[in-house]
Design a protein around this nucleic acid. Structure first.
Lengths: 204, 204, 204, 204
DNA sequence: AATGAATGAGTATTCATTCAT
DNA sequence: GATGAATGAATACTCATTCAT
């Protein structure tokens, strides 16, 4: 990478970091582009060299954060993309969820930021880096996982969707407010429900 | 009610109606207070006699709409608050959910408006009018329903919470975008999962 | 006085008191008629039954306060309007000033309120209640004092004017900020200068 | 100075000039920021690049005007900062006052604008440009003058303060309304009193 | 590529005043 | 006389975006 490209990347990341802090501290609406540029130590005009507007930045920031979380989770679980069938499907999913929930509970700003902004459509497009091949989006990774399990399901997309919505919905409230239960109390019930959702859709 | 109070109520409702339309058409952020007042045929200053600002109005509007939906659903299901044990608990809940989902699918703006804005805390406080007694909030109604079933659950709050988050999360995507499945495809799986959540928490 | 008149007077005084507090606390410009009415426990519309607007109230309030201060000062000094020549002129004036300065230093809000708002024209018109005769304005009282002294001055008006401006200008800074000296340090110099001003203008 | 800086200075001065005119014509309260910007031929937003609000502009404008007046007065009197002892102290002060009063009587808007707004604290800080050295504030210049006179005074600060308040208070009324006397009638009495104040405080 | 001065449309909010009750 | 709901003109201030340097 040339020196110039490095400098550009640095600016881009400075803008990301500044925006993330400000969005968490003051909310997106209350954060102005001036402030972001200021906090990132670049001129206001420079912002427009990297992003179309505040919402463009937000979308790219969410994608980057979500991708990073999922990648870290799969890595931490030791999910080997080349030997996916080593785990029962349920265990793989529950473990990934578990790692993510723990991370979220350590970084609630991350949770707050992502949850309110991540749509199902965007979620499917999140990219994962694959060692063997090109980058791969999350949805492709999920399909690989299903295929490797050798089992058949009525509608794997619906299955994933329900799991994501259940987890997403519950963890927001529970981690941020510990209402109506703590995360540790939620977990066993949540994982049971995930297993139920999977079981319900399997075609024996 | 005095004539003056009636006039005040009318203005308040005109503001509610105008705001609801505009919020759905243009989004909350793009809607100015001037527009709301205009559409409601009151002076701009009058807005401030009834609401602190746009967001105050929004919060009060959500509460009103949500309350109205729940009331209508329980009434339509024929849930008799004085003979609650006539139905098995699961059936009562699933039927209420079913009525609500159908209504939402007929009025997607209502769904769009409410879903993104209703927090668990606010949800619990939604008030229901009870014929026999005073007004009652939704949470009290739910507890009555549990009690009347004669069954015992580990944590009824958690149970309701998980159901609400699952239903809320899923129906938003499904009704508005029919992704990843249509509402009719979702329903059987969703209701099964609701029954699973209830079964999982019952103390036999 | 009829009961009705008493009630009216009470309202007027409540408005005065409320306004005085608010003007001192928040400044005249930042104080709205709503607030004054609120603080005085009368309806907004009622304000307009007593005063034309905020500045009408202010003017009447200043006149009332200034009159009260001068009256109290002359009374305290024991200046007998019917035997004015008992004191040398200089002593009478210096003593009145002294009493006023002490009062102002005890009630700096009063000082703050009056100083910035009292013009020379208004000052001359301030009314004093005279036991023997009708009410008398301050300026007439001053002329009586000069006459009673039996002495002659080039321009008694200019003399009073210079004294008032010197005292008014100095005491504001000194009492409120103790800059550049304390009130006690200022007094001897100030009184000397007053005596000089009088001496300078006497026609021997 | 770069071209950009020049342009900025021009805008700042255009805003000053526009504001001074409008403040004098309509009063500060009646002057809106829109009007100032309009009159200065800049966009409304530009105003906020130079001043926090209307009152920030006013303060900076007063300081600039006051400084300019004092500078011109000392220059006109021919007060040579390097040979200050050429004049008796009293004469120097009286002459400066005289020049200022004449200027004020030619530009009553200037007087009107400054008098009501200049505090003792601000007055002391007014800066004077000194040919020989760095800029110097007025207070330092005054101290130099006292030192050069070779005479000793109890409290030179108090002395200056009393003179300023006496002059300031009297000239406002007299110049603007010719009440209670004309400026020419006031002058001899005023200068006598200034000399008295100085004499009173000298330590022989 | 980077800067930051300039722009001006857009919006929230206040508040004196009126008038029907 | 007293009330306070309604009015809408008036204004301050923000901020995304542009563009000359």
């Amino acid at each position: 990478m040339s020196k110039l490209d490095e400098k550009k990347k640095k600016k881009r990341e400075a803008l990301f970091a500044a925006a993330f802090n400000l969005f968490n501290t003051k909310g997106i609406r209350q954060t102005s582009i001036s402030e972001i540029a200021n906090e990132a130590d670049v001129a206001k005009g420079t912002f427009y060299l990297y992003f179309k507007d505040k919402f463009d930045l937000r979308d790219k920031l969410i994608a980057a954060k979500a991708s990073q979380i999922l990648m870290q989770a799969t890595r931490e679980v030791g999910l080997d993309m080349d030997h996916l069938n080593m785990y029962p499907l349920e265990d793989a999913i529950v473990q990934i969820v578990d790692v993510i929930l723990d991370r979220m509970s350590r970084e609630p700003e991350l949770l707050r930021f992502i949850t309110k902004n991540l749509s199902w459509g965007a979620f499917r497009q999140i990219s994962l880096e694959d060692e063997s091949a090109e980058d791969m989006n999350f949805h492709e990774g999920y399909q690989k996982l299903i295929d490797a399990s050798g089992r058949r399901f009525e509608n794997p997309d619906l299955m994933l969707f329900m799991i994501v919505e259940l987890v997403g919905g519950c963890c927001y409230q529970v981690i941020l407010y510990e209402k109506p239960v703590t995360l540790e109390e939620l977990k066993p019930r949540l994982y049971e429900s995930i297993r139920d959702i999977i079981a319900n859709q399997e075609i024996s």
